[in-house]
Write a protein that binds this DNA or RNA. Sequence first.
DNA 1: AAGTTGTTTCTTGTATACACAATACAACTC
DNA 2: GAGTTGTATTGTGTATACAAGAAACAACTT
Lengths: 225, 225
Amino acid sequence: MLSINMQKHKPLRELVYEELRMLIMTGQIKPGTRMMEIDLAEGMGVSRTPVREAIRQLEKDNLVTIEPRRGAYVSDISATDMEDMLFVREPLEGIATFLATQNMTEDEIRELTDVNRQYEEAFQKGEREKLIKLDTHFHNLIAEGSHNKYLITVLKNLQEQVLRFRYIYFKSGKRAAEVINEHRLILNSMTERKEEDAKRYSIDHIAKLRESIIKEEDFQTKTVR
Amino acid sequence: MLSINMQKHKPLRELVYEELRMLIMTGQIKPGTRMMEIDLAEGMGVSRTPVREAIRQLEKDNLVTIEPRRGAYVSDISATDMEDMLFVREPLEGIATFLATQNMTEDEIRELTDVNRQYEEAFQKGEREKLIKLDTHFHNLIAEGSHNKYLITVLKNLQEQVLRFRYIYFKSGKRAAEVINEHRLILNSMTERKEEDAKRYSIDHIAKLRESIIKEEDFQTKTVR
DNA sequence: AAGTTGTTTCTTGTATACACAATACAACTC
DNA sequence: GAGTTGTATTGTGTATACAAGAAACAACTT
């Protein structure tokens, strides 16, 4: 029995979904692991139904792969997948930043600046979890600033995939220092409302992320399932 | 009882999914329609379970919207949604074409050329259904030619949304003639392996599609659910 | 010993029953 | 008559039972 049985307002399937999602995202359940409905259900003290539905939800996030009549497995992300994704994310992040520079209010940009300031703080204190959260938040704010619903969705999805990859394959956080500067460049351009500059710095930022991932070849290249 | 009960190799949920999907895509079930599990189940002669799962699948395609404890509705696409999507599709289609120009073999490009030839034929014969299929096929081939898994997924998704929007809101097909030429420009550049040109023409192509959709203001702007 | 077939077991797929939230409607109060 | 509360109805959420496919293993054949 997991700690799932108190807030009765959310559907069970949601709770199960969030629980599993977190476990997979952070790598606590490893790629390739088979997810059996009964086991999970018993483990969390619910029936198979909500578990099934949660698993289906996870499939859409690319977190599990379902093989008909055989069951669900935690899906793997290869370095190639990662490259593919970052290759797509590059121009999209650029566009989002471009639009955000035009659309965001002074206040919103100030909020963004503040997030980056907090990021620096967290970096100095070495708070790794917080760093991840703040980086995510930074990019989400920009995405939302684009006011383009579809762009927001796709970028969030992409960011999550990257996040998961990093969780699973390298806990380093080497880039944190550089990230601060790269974010600053973007931020300055945004503050001065220089869309083109902001766009360019933003694209650079993702390109560097991509390079850093390609370079670090030291992760297991297991192609489980 | 619908015509669903023969091929017993695919899971029921898949069949239900495909059936509903088609009905929604083509506008036979209109945006805002409530989809009640029991009704659908009885209508197709299956139990609620596969229907539920099919509906959840549809949600991920943005074809239905689920409100907890209230049920599922066929979701609507607004012109704004469409603009948002095409705005994102524009650069992505450009990138895909760029990559495809580098990656596709002579044979593959020939196949693409052939699809466009068939398109012209279908246009002369006025076969509307076929036109849609061939256009979809044309763009899918290019997407696949990029060899970028993520790009392929996103582009297919985007194309479907556009397709649905056109199915629902205008049956015209006015652009068919222009499309032929635009495709030709792309094709020629690809054949000559001029990536940059191909990319540019491809972006133009989507831009024109976007304009055509924005112009035609004659669709109902119902914001159901 | 290797390969084939039959049987058992495990797990998913589907149907169904029951619980309970949301809504609509009726009766009651002011 | 408007507003409020109680009740019935409807439909989703969850649990569970049963059907059937897939995999593992054993027994048998050659």
